[in-house]
Amino acid sequence: MTVINPAIPAGPYTFTWNGNDIGLTEGPARMQQSPFGLPVRATQWGDTIIDYILRGGGYFAVIVVKEWTTNSKLFMWPFGSNQGVIDEPGRLFSSYCQALVMTALANTPAATYGPVTRTYHYCATLPGHNLDIQAGPQERNVVVALGVLPQPNSGGSYKAKFFTDT
């Protein structure tokens, strides 16, 4: 008799952004990715989509921040931890992006099956995401949606690399 021992990578992750610990979080981090494609149709097939022309992809993450510290506030509002100011129009999102490193807790199945670490090399709070910051006799959990920017997968390549898993 043996246990079934399924390969389920359960376990909490900790997070640093720009090398700084963002503290405790609520629930799982959600790592999202989707390919973009232009539907191909032909008169002979009516409105049936007969193929897609692949046109890149988008990568996002959602993390619920629980602590209210300089690091967590900078993570959710990269323009400054006082959060009352947004920078001049015309600045590029990329200039605010920093590396987000997720690390599995040691001795958990997540650290066994991986990723042990996931590094989004360039990410910051997604423009348009509404930070809903609650003030009251309760935990101040803030949902932060992150936009991730790519880098070339290798020199001269137009394959877009958004993260590195280890």
């Binding site: 640093t16 690390t103 599995a104 042990v116």
Partner: peptide
């Protein structure tokens, strides 16, 4: 090992 682990946590890779 991950940067945030302690040495006693062992080797990950």
């Amino acid at each position: 090992m991950p940067d945030v682990w302690e040495d006693k946590d062992g080797v990950s890779h």
